[in-house]
């Protein structure tokens, strides 16, 4: 009898695990941004530069382009609307795998002091490997209506998808394909700038204390590990980057001896044209724009931070030659 009961329990447990997998979105053809966090884990961990931040990093910089031009090995650990406490945890997690020379953090998320949307939480967290960092991140990102348990057992969140399953859910049940190149999400569409809503007055232009606390933590961790923390503001027309924001970041950077590059200011120098180089009218750059920006920023990184040119390193180069072949194919 005991044996039978064991078999029954094992059977239902396996069924439960399979169903969890079945109803969880695969993020392969729709909402592909949910797949990004996962792709890092299978990479060879040899990056000298790691980007962290929101879509303003994964849409605007191309690591493969930077490798092609300067031999820089970099990876973008960006996710959709990555909030600063999420960036911090991703930074901590990254350091468990490797020790880069430079961490580039996009400061756009400084404006958010509270979690914004459950969907974005899911895109960032669903595919993250379990670790202390993930647990911290869930706890600090959950909205009122969310439960921790639903991150452990996705069936609790996605069970209603059972009546909406698509071919994607079966096709990618076991194996998934990568959708980024070192974290860069290629978008070739062109949508010229037209207009954006008027600039709003805000109740406060000062970044919140808790947000600064996370940034302080990043500074501390990078200093302790001898890593350069580089702050950037990626080029975009919207959402507005207020002058008050800019001043605070400049002050913070100088107080903490950090590099800060507001790339909005060098748009002309880089050659970005918001009529051809953006896929959504000026929020994010398309492939054209990202290529231009990567050439500029790669040069800057190389000049400032004494990075290795890995094109001369045979073992690394052979990995990247493969990536370049695939990349060239994808950008055609």
């Amino acid at each position: 009898m005991k044996k039978r009961i064991c078999i029954i329990i094992i059977f239902f447990l396996s069924l439960f695990i399979l169903l969890n997998r079945l109803v969880t979105p695969k993020y392969q053809t729709e909402l592909i941004e949910g797949h990004m966090i996962k792709e890092y884990y299978q990479e060879a961990k040899n990056h000298e530069v790691i980007f962290i931040g929101d879509c303003e990093v994964y849409a605007n910089f191309s690591p493969i382009q930077m490798y092609k031009d300067y031999g820089i090995t970099s990876y973008i650990r960006g996710t959709s609307q990555q909030l600063i406490w999420q960036s911090l945890e991703i930074l901590k997690e990254t350091l468990k795998y490797e020790k880069p020379k430079v961490i580039v953090f996009n400061v756009n998320s400084m404006r958010y002091d509270k979690p914004v949307s459950e969907a974005y939480n899911r895109l960032t967290l669903d595919n993250m490997k379990w670790s202390q960092e993930k647990i911290n991140m869930i706890n600090s990102s959950m909205l009122e209506e969310e439960t921790f348990l639903s991150y452990i057992f996705p069936i609790l969140r996605y069970h209603s998808r059972i009546t909406e399953l698509t071919k994607e859910d079966l096709d990618y049940f076991l194996n998934e394909k990568n959708i980024t190149f070192n974290g860069f999400l290629i978008n070739k569409n062109i949508k010229p700038y037209t207009s954006f809503p008027e600039q709003r007055r805000l109740p406060s232009y000062t970044f919140k204390e808790n947000v600064y606390k996370y940034l302080d933590e990043m500074v501390k961790i990078t200093k302790n590990n001898n890593i350069e923390l580089v702050l950037i503001k990626a080029p975009s027309i919207y959402p507005y980057w207020y002058d008050e924001y800019e001043k605070q970041i400049i002050d913070y950077a100088s107080k903490n001896n950090l590099h800060y590059y507001n790339l909005k200011k060098v748009v002309d120098e880089v050659g970005i044209d918001y009529n051809t180089d953006t896929y959504d009218g000026g929020l994010h750059l398309n492939l054209n724009g990202a290529t231009k920006l990567s050439k500029y920023f790669g040069k800057l990184l190389q000049d400032e931070f004494n990075l290795t040119d890995y094109r001369n390193n045979e073992s690394v180069n052979s990995i990247y030659q493969n990536k370049i072949l695939l990349y060239n194919d994808a950008i055609k």
């Binding site: 029954i8 329990i9 239902f12 069924l15 439960f16 169903l19 109803v23 459950e118 209506e145 969310e146 439960t147 639903s150 069936i155 609790l156 969140r157 069970h159 209603s160 059972i162």
Partner: peptide
Amino acid sequence: LSLLLITLLLGIYGL
């Protein structure tokens, strides 16, 4: 276990 599993999957609950 069947009832629980079916309810987990087909129940209307959560977000």
